[in-house]
Computed example of a mutant assay.
Amino acid sequence: MSAADAGGSQVKSAVRTVELLEYFAARPGMHSLAAVQEAVGYPKSSLYMLLRTLVDLGWIETDTTGTRYGIGVRALLVGTSYIDGDEVVAAARPTLDRLADDTTETVHLARLDGTDVVYLATRQSQHYLRPFARVGRRLPVHSTSLGKALLATFTDDQVRGMLPPNLAQLTEHTLTDREALIEELHAVREQGYAVDREENTLGLRCFGLAIPNRTPARDAVSCSVPVARLTPDHEQLIKDMLFGARDRLARVTRRL
């Protein structure tokens, strides 16, 4: 029976292909067939044939032995085309450049994707000591200022529907209790910005604001700074510059 005959049901081979690509995208490096099979649970014979097809098409790569698999270059091309074609990213470029110049710190533009935030654009700090960042990086919403700023645009009940009661711990400072996170979101709504207090990376504090071009918000902007360099005056400068950037981004993306 075809997908159309089944009333629009998912095509199994297509679903498995996407799940495989997402598996490799979330796990850099090379992986054995046994490790992949254990993670995805597909029959070993059909998994092998699907992997070989994806290798032939360039979406998956193998090592010199042909027994280990990793994400292929064609996945990079698709990801790059998404960034290059996104109207919000294009409209945000001048504001991100200005924010990076004004703060001298690393700034990010990110988008909500399920229970993660995905980094769409980054401007690196002018300082030698700076956080590692890359476009396409995916992090849990509860551990980042970007994610918390976006979650604050949802209702408490919507957040409960999105997140499990117990949240993954990335550092000793990560909020792992959903209700404690929701309490913090109340403060985020009042003050207008969220803070990541070494909850994702030790030694790094981040400030994030949601861009109010839709409700709930989909995109957010942030600034990251090593705690060793964060003085009270510098923190206030970052917050002031972020609010100005947020307002400019809201104007230029309002109709996108």
Rank of each mutant, 00 (worst) to 15 (best):
E199T: 09
V78N: 04
P94L: 07
M30S: 10
G7D: 13
M162Q: 09
A220I: 01
R254F: 08
R254W: 04
T53E: 14
V73H: 05
E190Q: 10
D219M: 10
Q158W: 05
R248S: 08
I238N: 06
E235I: 08
P226A: 14
L175K: 07
R218C: 15
K239L: 14
G114R: 01
A91I: 03
S222F: 02
P28R: 06
D101I: 11
E183W: 12
V18K: 09
T201H: 07
V11K: 05
A6G: 15
T80Y: 12
D97T: 10
A4H: 15
F154A: 04
V117R: 01
R123P: 05
R27Y: 05
G29Y: 07
R52A: 09
R98C: 03
V40L: 14
A3R: 13
R130A: 13
A75Y: 03
R254A: 13
Y48Q: 10
A110R: 00
A250V: 10
G136W: 10
A90D: 05
P216H: 11
P131E: 13
D97A: 08
D63M: 01
K239G: 03
Q191D: 08
Y82D: 04
R138M: 06
L150I: 11
G192T: 00
I182Y: 03
A180L: 07
S2I: 07
M162E: 11
G72L: 03
V227A: 02
A187E: 10
L76T: 15
V36D: 00
H186F: 15
L99G: 10
V141I: 13
L202Y: 10
V135C: 01
G41V: 04
L129Y: 13
A245Y: 02
T215S: 13
V117M: 05
D219K: 07
T155Y: 01
L33T: 04
Y42K: 01
A26T: 06
R218N: 04
I182M: 00
A194M: 13
T122N: 15
L181Y: 00
R218E: 06
V195Q: 14
A100E: 02
G58V: 13
R205V: 15
E38M: 13
G41M: 08
D177V: 09
L20I: 06
V40A: 02
R111L: 12
I182K: 00
C223M: 06
L209A: 12
A210M: 00
H127V: 07
L21W: 09
I211C: 01
D113R: 12
R130C: 13
V73M: 10
V225P: 00
L204R: 12
M162D: 09
G79K: 14
D116M: 08
T144R: 12
L96R: 01
